[in-house]
Design a protein around this nucleic acid. Structure first.
Lengths: 245, 245
DNA sequence: CGACAAGTTGATACCGTTCAACCTGCGTGG
DNA sequence: CCACGCAGGTTGAACGGTATCAACTTGTCG
């Protein structure tokens, strides 16, 4: 019903729009193609549409007055962007490479929500999943060290693959290192260094810079929880420490 | 209508329950009194109720395998706790001091949502506000240094006061320093040091440890945005630096 | 009052940042 | 087709903000 079937991502709300976006909400939708680094919208823009990513990948981010940037999420094909009720977008959405989005007029979207309870309930559900993802992000940024943060990032993408029936140990990273860094509250250099340490530790294998193979999932899981045991491949530097961070 | 009037907090969804919780959702609600440090629920508990904080203050937090804790929010009187659709709570809710909550059976809550579109839409709105707060938290933890983080925390409480018609320059902190620390991704010691630096800088005045007066809002706003100008009271240590953090 | 939790302050260590140099890969245009 | 250019990525050295550990002070509640 409604063409809003299930959820896909835990990061961006994902309500697959059926085969080709033929849901009732999509009746009057327009398309938009974006080139690399082009913004779909920026912080403060009037919220006119809710977007559905048909192809490509976007980064969602907020900035501070001094220019520092926090990536708050990535939107992949099949994800929705722009749930929210304020008059303006509270963050920026920018295409990473080339991408294609469908624009659903906010008005009809919300009218449907008020007419059809199940529809509104689905919006509630979807937002709830995004909220859980945002809480996980806070946990990662605030409490995980660089290794744990990168590990949990990779595992997140792995679980995402799994949910979509894709091989969960081979991961493609559409985004540059700096995006991963600004997502995890680190710098590009630190992310790069962490990748190589995971690599020499035998936990991952990197090919073509945007392709990663997870070769030791149990170790990655332990790392992500901050339980960097002595047994497995990865050891932080030299000598054990009390409480790393 | 419905007894669900407006929003109160940007942190926890706040739909004031009217005067005394006489909304239709509250028809069969039960009460629960909590003492200091008592948990309302913990991570993994079955989600049976949605809670309404009638008095007191709770901390919501998640933990890592190694024991590190991330506070993801504070729930004050008038806030709701426990929106979400999964079978289990994805975080812990613990009373800070003494508090009192009303328990709304999740089933009737969701049944109402499916029967009454406006109700479901309100849930969607409320969750959306929580999501924005979670994104702000990620920005704070990931990109603000300790001074900026504490400043934005105080300003958040100030705005909260303002919205409730309370004096926005006098702030009470029901939570201990360690909670603020785990909320901002810092340690209690760092929070304490930051408070005293703000104090000697003349930006705040601290009385009785849980009461703060904001004596220089413009400077706090600049600090929170990372634009620690040379003019105002607060200067980080000695000598200017390129990009602090 | 007395005990214990919470908060402050100090000394030191270190993880991640910063700055810088270099490498790599890919798209563009001569 | 190769040369060039440049963004993205890696690696190194040094600095510094924050964590850690520890001692002490303050506040609070029974």
């Amino acid at each position: 019903m409604l063409g809003l079937a299930g959820m896909g991502s835990e990061n961006q709300a994902a309500i697959p729009c059926g085969n080709g976006c033929e849901s009732s909400a999509c009746t009057h939708c327009t398309q938009r193609a974006l080139v690399a680094k082009q913004h779909l919208f920026t912080h403060g823009d009037e919220q006119r549409y809710i977007y559905y990513v048909h192809a490509g990948c976007l980064r969602l981010y907020k900035t501070l007055g001094n220019g520092r940037r926090q990536v708050i999420g990535f939107s992949f094909a099949g994800d929705f962007i722009g749930f929210g009720i304020g008059p303006e977008f509270p963050y920026n959405a920018q295409s990473i490479g080339r991408s294609e989005v469908r624009c659903l007029p906010r008005g009809t979207f919300h009218r449907l929500a008020l007419e059809i309870p199940r529809f509104a309930f689905r919006l509630y559900e979807a937002t709830t999943l995004e909220l859980a993802a945002a809480h996980d992000l806070a946990l990662t940024i605030g409490q995980r060290n660089s290794a744990a943060a990168v590990a949990s990032f990779l595992l997140w993408l792995s679980r995402r693959n799994e949910r979509r029936g894709v091989e969960p140990t081979t991961i493609s990273l559409p985004m540059p290192r700096t995006d991963i860094a600004d997502y995890l509250g680190l710098t590009g250099e630190t992310v790069s260094r962490t990748f190589t340490r995971l690599k020499v530790g035998g936990l991952i294998r990197v090919t073509r810079k945007r392709l990663v193979q997870l070769t030791d999932l149990p170790a990655l899981l332990e790392l992500a929880e901050g339980m960097a045991g002595e047994h497995a491949g990865y050891r932080h530097s030299d000598g054990p420490r009390r409480t790393p961070h």
